[in-house]
Simulated scan of single mutants.
Amino acid sequence: MKKLSDAKVGDYVKVIQNDAQDSLKERFLALGLTNGANIEVLRNGPKNNLTVFRIRGAMIALRKEESKYIEII
């Protein structure tokens, strides 16, 4: 499956599953990363470790280590 960390700048993707555990999963849910959520990849941060996404109208920055838990199509 494709992960959110694989998405490129300019892509529009949809969440199909949140594979995170415990507090990280709760954080993702609070940020709007729920099944079916549409995400736009806006830009990469320094050293390509951080990526900025538009999720439900809000701009959210996630590290690659975090975004690898989100499955997308």
Rank of each mutant, 00 (worst) to 15 (best):
R56M: 10
I16R: 10
M59G: 09
K2C: 03
I16Y: 02
L62Y: 01
L42E: 13
E26L: 09
V52A: 15
I55M: 14
Y12K: 05
R63N: 03
K25C: 08
R56I: 07
V41M: 13
E40C: 02
R54S: 12
G57C: 13
L4W: 00
G36W: 03
K8Y: 13
E66G: 14
A7W: 00
G36D: 04
A20F: 01
N38I: 06
E71K: 02
R54N: 09
N35S: 05
R63G: 10
E40W: 00
A20R: 01
G10L: 06
K25R: 09
A7H: 01
A30D: 13
A61W: 00
K8L: 15
L31C: 06
T34K: 11
A20S: 09
A37T: 04
D11K: 03
Q21H: 12
K2Y: 07
R27P: 01
R43E: 06
M1I: 12
N35R: 05
I70M: 08
A7G: 01
G45S: 14
A58M: 13
D11I: 00
R27L: 10
G45K: 14
K3A: 05
Q21L: 12
M59H: 13
V52L: 14
G32L: 06
D19T: 15
N48H: 09
E40D: 05
K2A: 12
A37I: 00
R63A: 06
L29R: 07
D22L: 15
I39R: 15
T51A: 14
S67T: 14
A30Q: 13
R54C: 06
A37Q: 04
I72D: 12
K2M: 08
L42T: 11
I39H: 15
F53Q: 08
T34C: 03
A7R: 01
G36L: 05
G36R: 05
K25W: 02
R27D: 04
A20K: 03
S23E: 06
I73A: 14
R56T: 04
I60R: 07
V52Q: 15
A61G: 09
I72H: 12
Y69S: 05
V9C: 15
K2R: 09
D11Q: 04
A7T: 01
V52G: 03
E26Q: 07
E71R: 03
M1V: 14
D6C: 09
I55Y: 02
L62I: 05
S5R: 00
T51P: 08
G32H: 03
N38M: 11
A7P: 01
Q21D: 12
G32F: 04
M59Y: 08
I70K: 03
N38T: 03
K8R: 14
I60A: 03
Y12A: 07
